[in-house]
Design a protein around this nucleic acid. Structure first.
Ligand code: NAD
Ligand code: NAD
Lengths: 210, 210
DNA sequence: AAACTGTTGTGAAAAATATCACATAAATCA
DNA sequence: TGATTTATGTGATATTTTTCACAACAGTTT
């Protein structure tokens, strides 16, 4: 029904709305959201229409209502717990990032094979990989992040899956084979940089030949 | 002509090819690449056809040739220099990541407003923001990464643009307004996590009602 | 050397996504 | 109260992207 980019846009709208709310906005027009999310206003309305979200035929949308409707769709009406496997550069950056919590995303534990990284005496403990299954079961974790080196990623994914994890964000630069009924999204930063290189060069050429 | 996801796939194919090459593969079939990049083999061939890349009607593709052809398209036939603005968690993670260099991407300097972060006595120096313009001009930098807090991101982008940067990867969780002839790609990790939450819940519901 | 096999390459069809065009509703004004 | 203005909501249309179907081809077998 809804497509991936539509959901990404919903997230962005929600972000924008929260921002606008702190500026004491009470209602918004699809045009406002379009500006902030860098899309067209029709796109905004179409996205809403897809989820049965509606505003007032003239007065736009009430921010509070809109936020809670989008939040419900995105599962942000309750805190969603994540674990992070691989507490290196990326893993640490994620665990240190305070804003997730503000948006109902809670990183509840890290896991690593390197025992030097283990640490139970902090709010978000770093645990040995062996405890993954137990922890996931006891705390009913559904989501996780993979930030281990590429060669370990597939193996870690399978471990997570067996533990009961249903959704994974992967930073390792390989395309993981997703187990059945498990959602995996790959983020490949190198690929992103290459994309920029390509389109920058391309734009230059196009510009030059104009 | 070529679309964004096609270029992303080219990057993935290239990655896969390099991986296969280290396993002493000499040629590949579109099927092999499809497996590694998790797409269909038609997609692979179609992507190639779009760029006039062709193989042997029966024997697949010669890895070496293929790598160099894709590399040329992606601008990987020479080292591409990037700067990073904002040397916090994410900025540091990027600068510490050794694999960029292996793939012709070189992070040549970091910039920060916090003078405690400045450091010239290392391979990749961290410089004050004031030196951005000079550095970019002198070193002919075209690309950069934004890893500053959200409220500073737009301002930093404009600074980079005025300095002559043409392509930017942005980690701040806002949609930046791209200056003319400047390519900007936004990575929003929170949005990615929300995406996973949505599609995991969605898959569960679909599964349950089956 | 003809038949066969397995893979590429691509125009055509299908599916997914975004845009357009405009009817519809609410608020304001005359 | 009726005309006017200004958004929304959405079926129809256009565009983009993927998949299908199959011809072209190069080896291999008989
Ligand atoms: N750092 C970056 O900027 C960057 C950029 C692009 C891609 N990546 C990718 O992101 C991933 C993480 O990068 P990083 O820089 O944080 O790596 P890192 O080497 O700093 O950290 C990896 C961590 O994973 C742990 N680990 C290794 N094998 C494990 C296993 N089987 N189970 C659990 N933990 C294990 C290690 O002990 C280490 O703490 C890598 O796949 C990397 O290729 C990172
Ligand atoms: N760390 C994460 O896991 C994470 C997750 C999601 C999003 N992000 C986003 O990525 C960006 C970077 O995150 P982070 O965790 O590395 O932040 P951070 O706070 O650790 O680092 C930000 C750095 O930017 C510098 N800075 C601030 N204003 C600046 C300016 N005008 N010019 C130059 N430097 C400036 C600060 O001195 C600091 O060193 C943020 O926008 C954040 O919202 C980070």
């Amino acid at each position: 029904m809804a497509n991936k980019s539509c959901i990404i846009r919903l997230s962005m709208y929600r972000n924008a709305l929260i921002r606008l709310k702190t500026l004491n906005f009470v209602k918004v027009f699809s045009d406002n959201l379009a500006d902030v999310a860098r899309v067209t206003s029709v796109q905004v309305r179409k996205d809403f229409s897809l989820f049965g979200i509606s505003g007032n035929r003239r007065g736009g949308y009430l921010i509070d209502e809109l936020i809670s409707q989008i939040s419900a769709i995105l599962g942000k009406d309750k805190v969603q717990k994540f674990i992070v496997i691989g507490i290196g550069n990326i893993g640490k950056a994620l665990l240190n990032y305070p804003s997730f919590k503000k948006n109902e995303i809670e990183l509840v534990a890290g896991f690593d094979i390197d025992m030097n990284k283990h640490n139970r005496d902090v709010e978000v403990p770093i645990l040995p990989l062996e405890e993954l299954g137990k922890f996931v079961a006891e705390n009913e974790i559904k989501f996780g992040v993979i930030s281990v080196p590429d060669f370990a990623a597939q193996e870690v994914l399978e471990l997570m899956f067996r533990a009961g994890i249903k959704g994974v964000l992967n930073f390792a630069p390989i395309c993981l084979k997703e187990p059945p009924d498990c959602v995996v999204r790959n983020i490949n930063l190198e690929t992103e940089l290459e994309n920029i290189i390509y389109f920058t060069n391309f734009a230059e050429q196009a510009g030059a030949s104009r």
